[in-house]
């Protein structure tokens, strides 16, 4: 729980994306130090904590919702975050991960694990086995985050420039709703 004296808590999550948005986040450079003074980053691909915390004030989500695991994470994020921001085009629109949506999943698997596989040599290799164990099943479509949970704010861009991320964070910390299209756009 946030007490008036404690710093707001922040988490960042990486679903089906290329990590570009997180790279852009790291591009905040020395502003990261300023940020560290303003918030506590509880959970992120760039910090150690593995479990998503019980309660966070603000979560930035990169990536589309592609697999059942992504969906599971998204629901947890929503339940435990006060504010959820879709960070970058994959989370906002589906973007590149959603380009598989024009095809059937079985065609995709066939392409990836059969047609594009190396020439099989042994009978075992010839028996094509799709990876299933320990791999989260793909959902029929990769979708934007707001198709599965309520999203409070959207920052488009592929990736959103560091300045845009900075603007977003500082506006939120100042208690204002950022006008994100003034700093970024689809494909920026």
């Amino acid at each position: 729980m946030t007490t008036p004296t404690a710093k707001p808590t922040v988490a960042t999550v990486w679903l089906d994306g290329c990590s570009g948005c997180h790279m852009s986040f790291l591009d905040l450079d020395e502003r990261l130090i300023t940020l560290a003074g303003l918030v506590d980053v509880l959970h992120s691909p760039v910090v150690d904590q593995k479990q998503f915390p019980q309660q966070v004030d603000l979560t930035l989500v990169e990536g589309a919702v592609s697999s059942e695991e992504d969906l599971h994470k998204a629901l947890i994020i929503r339940a435990r975050s006060k504010l959820v921001v879709a960070l970058g085009d994959c989370a906002v629109t589906g973007n590149v991960p959603a380009m598989r949506n024009y095809f059937d999943r079985s065609d995709l698997f066939a392409r990836a694990y059969v047609e594009n596989a190396q020439e099989p040599t042994t009978p075992e290799e010839r028996r094509v086995v799709l990876p299933v164990l320990g791999v989260p099943p793909l959902r029929p479509h990769a979708t934007a985050l707001h198709e599965v949970i309520k999203v409070d704010m959207f920052l488009p861009g592929c990736p959103p420039p560091a300045d845009a991320i900075w603007y977003l964070l500082t506006e939120i910390l100042a208690g204002r709703t950022p006008a994100t299209t003034t700093v970024s756009r689809f494909g920026k």
């Binding site: 085009d89 629109t93 589906g94 973007n95 959603a98 380009m99 979708t143 689809f186 494909g187």
Partner: peptide, 30 residues
């Protein structure tokens, strides 16, 4: 519309229109 891989990215009237109208996401099912 996958602007990030589109040849017209940055020079597109639809994209510009989205910015002008303040569209940061699409509420309808793709």
């Amino acid at each position: 519309h996958v602007c990030s891989v589109c040849v017209s990215n940055g020079h597109c009237e639809l994209q510009t229109m989205a910015v002008k109208l303040g569209i940061d996401h699409v509420r309808f099912a793709y």
